[in-house]
Amino acid sequence: MPIYQEIPDISQLQEIARQVRLDILEMLFKSGSGHTGGSLSATDILVALFFAQMRFNPRDPCWPGRDRFVLSKGHAAPALYAVLSRLGYFPRKELLTLRQFGSSLQGHPDSSCTPGVEVSTGSLGQGLSIANGMALAARLNGSGARVYALLGDGEVQEGQIWEAAMSAAHYKLDNLVAVLDRNRLQIDGRTADVMGLEPLAQKWEAFGWHTQEVDGHSFPELLAALKATDGVAGRPHMIVAHTVKGKGVSIFENQAKYHGVTPTKEEYEQALKELA
């Protein structure tokens, strides 16, 4: 939450998430290209982080003491853009330029052109190492800032994630919180069929992380898990958030095909009705 604002209550967070989902769908419908399923599965996590947990200041984006965020699953960029715009980093009308030539909103996050985007991502598996480096720098700087990273579940099939899992624990990065958007689907189908990940939470635990599992669409559970990270020192924090890909619109939910497909006019109209 911006440091000058009150933290919203649960019902306010739910309302923000509803509006963010509407923004995401409008952006994707307008652009005709982008990632629907993973943006909607990550929405509540992003809203919890940006509106209730992290400390930053959109009026002073480079405030050294700010918490940092890394969208390691960079294809959920529409969700991040919708959140950043709502926080005042850039005007809402820019959302409708998503993926267009000359737009500040690139297909995947680009720190060089989007206010509020700290790290350029898009190639999966690289964000956690970057988050580790930022956490090490924050420790060296003595700033007290925390680093938050959002990972996809298909993404953790990348070997570099497990290199980073080892190094975060080795360097005892307790100022690092990773949230894993466990929506159980990837482009080619179910993660269990494409490349099995289980036992996933146990893997992070075994790598030395303080690991929690939550319903990634429950704000009380997300906020409680984030709060619980305060009480554990000397270990990085992993929150495995169980989510539904395409959450919020029945026709997109749990459908692998909407990973990288945008709504048709009819689908968009139905989505507006469901989210009304």
């Binding site: 790290v119 190492s129 970057i130 480096g133 930022m134 956490a135 090490l136 720098a137 700087n141």
Partner: peptide
């Protein structure tokens, strides 16, 4: 100020990127 990343070059370069973002 020295970080041995083990036999993990990909993580080393990514961590270096993060350190640069943190002003190092």
């Amino acid at each position: 100020r020295f970080f041995n990343m083990g036999v993990a070059e990909q993580d080393m370069l990514g961590t270096a990127a993060g350190l640069a973002l943190g002003g190092k």
